[in-house]
Each structure stands twice: as C-alpha cells, then as structure tokens.
Design a protein around this nucleic acid. Structure first.
Lengths: 204, 204
DNA sequence: AGCCTCGTAGTCAAATTTGACCAGTTGCTC
DNA sequence: GAGCAACTGGTCAAATTTGACTACGAGGCT
C-alpha cells in the first residue's frame, strides 16, 4: 500500500468536500511533505483515479474563484468511506516497513473507537514479532551466525529496527489505554485542517 | 533512489557477467526478497534501462542452454562501475527512510576501503541528526507540544526510529573500526554469490 | 510602465513498479 | 506413461510516481 490514497481520502473526509489544492495544503500542514513523498502529480492522480473507481464523487465546479483553471471538488462516497477505514485498519495492523503509511495512519487513528485502535496496534506488535522471527530465521545458518560475514549486519539492522518499532508501538498502546487523546464517539474531535482563511502557523 | 539499481549493478558486478535470471537468484539468495520488493519485472526492466543508458553492456547470447527464450548477458561498463560506487556511497550516507536501500548498501559496503566505509557511515549519523532536528522543529508549536494532540505521536515515532537508526549505525562503525569483516584491498574477499551448480543452502 | 516573485491550481510525458501471464523442461508420482 | 508441480527465463499491459512545466492574478519595487 502506498500512503497517498489514505492521505488523500483522509483529507477529503475531514473537509467534507475538497479540491486538489486543498488536499495538497492539508498534507503540507500535517508535515506530510517531511515524511511522505506526496508530490502534486501523485495527489491529482490519486483523486482522479479514485473518482473513476467510485470512491470519490467529483463535482465539476465552475472556473475557480480567483481565476486559473477550473477546479474540481471531491467528496467521499459510501464506497470511499469503506475504503478509507479499510486502508486505515490495514495500515495500523500490518508491518510493511513503510513508515509513511504508518505516519498517515497515526494521524487518522482517532477516527476509530479507542478500543479498536488499541487492538489493531496490538496486532501490529504481533506482526512485528513475526517479521523479526522471519528475518532471524532466514539469516541463521547452521554453523553459527559468524559464517555470514558482513551480510549478518543486514539482519542486525532489521532486528534492531523491528525492536525499536515494537517498543514505540507498545508505548503508544499504553498511552491510548491510559486515556490519552480523543477518539471517535468521545465528544469534540481534534480538528487537523485549516479553516478557510486561517493561517498556517507552521509555514516556513 | 530505489534499491533496485544498486542491487542489480552489484549482482552483475559480482558475477562479472550475468543474465536476468541469475540476478533474480542472487537477490533471493541474499534474502533480498524479504526486505526489498524486487519483482522480476523490475529487475528485467532495470537491466534493459541501464543497458540503454550505457551502464551495462548487453551481450546477445544464443538461445539458452536449456531451451526457453534466448538469454541476454550483461556486463558492467566503465560508466556502470562509476554509477555503482556513486549509488553505494549515496546509499550509505544519506537518510531517505528507505531501509531496503540501506540493506543493499550494507551488503556491498565491503567493496569500499574500510576507512571510507566508516567515514560514510559517520556522515550518515550526521544526516540522521539533521533529520531528527527537522522533525522536532516542524512539530514543536509555541504553546508546548501538548497542543498537537495525537498528531504529536507522528513526531514521536520518527524520533524514536531515528534514534534507533543512529544507535545501530554507531554500533556498526565501531565494529568496522575494530577490524571486523574483510574490505576492499584486504585480501580474500567474501563471496556472496552462488557458483554454477552450487546449491542454495537457505532455499525454503 | 515594466519586471520579478509568490501563491493558486493543475497538466503532461517519461520512468518505474506491479502483478499477471507465457512457454519450455525436468523430475516425480500414481 | 500421463499428469502435474516446480524450475528456468522472460514478456507485457496497466497502474503509479516523478519532476518539470503551464497559466493566471496580485503585490511590490524601481
């Protein structure tokens, strides 16, 4: 899975209705340009593609308010919402070594009920354990690990990284279970988009 | 950078001359299927592309020894060797959050002199520090970090992962400086490819 | 008046990646 | 001795990603 679809669906969902440039801006606001390689081309492509697949409904909008090319506004369909939650759940659970996907999922995790988020993360921990086991399994020759020479360092790296990932995930689960943050159905949601006219306080 | 080019160049280099299937097999032997998403299509594509760019020289070979489609054998050109070392150095130095690239680079690091490898890794540590700083910088609002809500967890994750990466890198540098492994120009090199007819002891 | 830069909004060709598929050969088993 | 899986070697169309480019208006400077 690439992070783009999740990111774009999430952005459109928070706005209710959004055009490409708004999505682009939200991603910037979330700091996504730091960790996801979401270029304009990919964003516009994803919007069109998902519209074609029926995940988004495209409202043809008149030539934009400020001149320039006509804008298209998008809105989630039923299917789009399903896809969004499916991607979100998958991103939280499976380990696919793509941290941008995980980042996006963390940003949206509060769209799920608290208990479900925690449970998905617990499954993630199990996935990390499996990954670790498969790496050590593959790189463990009969004659002791020293036979591998420097190749063993590759395993070393993955194991180190899996352990770090597990540690962080366990910490997050703990914080969630201790009541941190506001999840779905718990009153006033945290709003992570810019309202019209509001300034981006992080713009460099 | 994607890991494929480095992996393919490295595989061809170790063989002197190789056709697509051999490359495919080496990658499997190195366990690369576990951590790089190198599908056959990508490998053959990379070979053709790099041949077109003059990095590889393509020898048209008669219909293969065992029937099936005719094979093409590739060999590194001068330019290909330069590109290989350029990619290798870059992969060791820069942090681009793609661990598959780093894995590949670790596998090939012994093609460099010991001192250079250590130096590149020291630069990598500096790059990790910069990345960490840029993340914490971006996600630190004026009113204390608690304003971010769950979004702060994203930063938390990246910082955790950068720290783990740094720790592992420092460990590796230490081992290298302590004399581990056999680097370029230090006598008998470690051979990481299957000779003709040899069996893969790791095949599942 | 002319020029330059920045912000808004988006397109396009080229490169890459994916995943499925093709076709011949052994080797094994029922 | 027929079938069938596994191995060898590779192609192909479709999807995705990249990076550069277009076009327009507002504001500022000189």
């Amino acid at each position: 899975m690439s992070a783009i679809r999740l990111l774009v669906l999430g952005a459109v969902k928070q706005h209710g209705r959004a055009h490409g440039y708004q999505v682009r801006n939200d991603l910037e606001y979330w700091g996504a340009h730091e960790w996801s390689h979401a270029k304009p081309g990919s964003i516009y492509h994803a919007l069109k593609q998902m519209a074609k697949q029926g995940l988004l409904h495209a409202h043809e909008v008149a030539p934009s308010a400020v001149g320039g090319p006509p804008r298209v506004e998008y809105e989630l369909t039923e299917a789009g919402a399903e896809e969004y939650f499916a991607l979100l759940r998958e991103a939280l659970t499976t380990y696919d070594q793509k941290m941008d996907v995980l980042s996006a999922a963390i940003g949206f995790m509060v769209d799920l009920p608290r208990e479900e988020a925690a449970e998905l993360l617990r499954r993630r921990v199990r996935a990390l354990d499996e990954w670790r086991a498969s790496v050590t399994g593959y790189y463990t020759p009969e004659g002791g690990p020293e036979q591998l020479g420097h190749i063993g360092e590759i395993m070393h790296m993955w194991v180190h990284s899996a352990d770090a990932g597990k540690e962080w995930t366990l910490g997050l689960i703990e914080r969630i279970e201790a009541g941190a943050y506001v999840f779905a159905g718990e009153g006033e949601a945290f709003v992570g988009v810019l309202a019209e006219g509001q300034e981006n306080p992080y713009a460099s």
